Computed example of a mutant assay.
Amino acid sequence: MPVMDFLTASHDAMLSHGVNLYAEIFVNAQGERLYSSFESQKIDLFASYFNNTAYNSFFFSCYPIQDITQIKEFGYFYDTPGSYSIEVNGGRETDKSRELLQMRMISKNPDKQIQSFYRTLQRNLKKISGLQKHTQKNYFYLPSPKIIIPANPHSKNTRDNWEDFNLSKIERDTVQG
């Protein structure tokens, strides 16, 4: 689904469960990252990150972070903050394709608050009009004339355009299969 639809659908669940949303952007080739928090008044700004080639992923967290700079101090999802977080990969979109949004719990023993948010978000997403379940794969989607590309964080290491990289990979897999 388009990222804007996803952000809109997740907003009420975020508010009711005390969950925040952060985007991770690569700053340089050395792997330094910038984290930006979501603010409902600036949904367009947050959605613009998905068009940035430096975009890596985003995540939901109910960990009590007083200042966004603390994320760097704690590390991405390691140790305690990981129990309070859900990572989301994907979300890029162009005229030709849309990248799947893939959510995953970071911890095997997540905090009850983030678990409750996750269940609520899944219920809310399944209520979206027109949402369909793929018959052979385990994901939901909104019908689109665009090619649906799997979210692949490893493809961000390529120097090619992410879309061209993924589309050529799909074509290779189809020819070989």
Rank of each mutant, 00 (worst) to 15 (best):
N109S: 08
K72E: 15
R98K: 14
S83P: 04
N52I: 03
S168A: 15
K126R: 13
Y78C: 15
E32G: 07
S97N: 04
Q176V: 14
I149S: 05
S116C: 01
L121V: 00
R33T: 15
N157Y: 13
Y35A: 03
A47P: 00
S155P: 00
S83H: 15
L167P: 01
R92H: 03
R98N: 13
F59P: 00
K156L: 14
Y78Q: 15
S155Y: 07
T120D: 13
R123W: 08
M105H: 11
H154I: 10
A47E: 10
A151N: 02
S97W: 03
K169T: 13
I128S: 00
K137N: 12
A151Q: 00
R98V: 14
L125D: 04
Q176E: 15
P145A: 02
Y63H: 06
K72N: 15
F140H: 13
I148Y: 04
N51A: 09
G75S: 00
N161T: 10
D173V: 12
Q66P: 07
K137L: 11
L34Y: 13
F117E: 08
I128K: 05
I71H: 05
Q136C: 07
L101P: 02
K126L: 09
D79F: 11
I128F: 01
N166L: 12
R123I: 10
K169R: 15
F117D: 10
F77K: 08
I68Q: 04
E87S: 11
E163I: 06
D164P: 03
F165L: 08
A29S: 14
P143M: 05
F165K: 12
Y139F: 07
S57L: 06
E73H: 14
D79L: 11
S61W: 06
S85T: 09
Q176G: 12
T158R: 14
L121K: 00
E163T: 08
T94Q: 02
H134N: 06
D164E: 13
A151F: 00
S129H: 12
E93A: 10
T135D: 11
Y118V: 05
Q70W: 15
I71K: 08
S116R: 10
L167W: 02
S57M: 07
D164G: 06
T120Y: 06
D95A: 13
Y76H: 14
N124Q: 05
A54L: 08
I170P: 02
Y49R: 03
E99S: 00
M105K: 12
S61L: 04
N152R: 11
H134S: 02
W162R: 13
C62P: 01
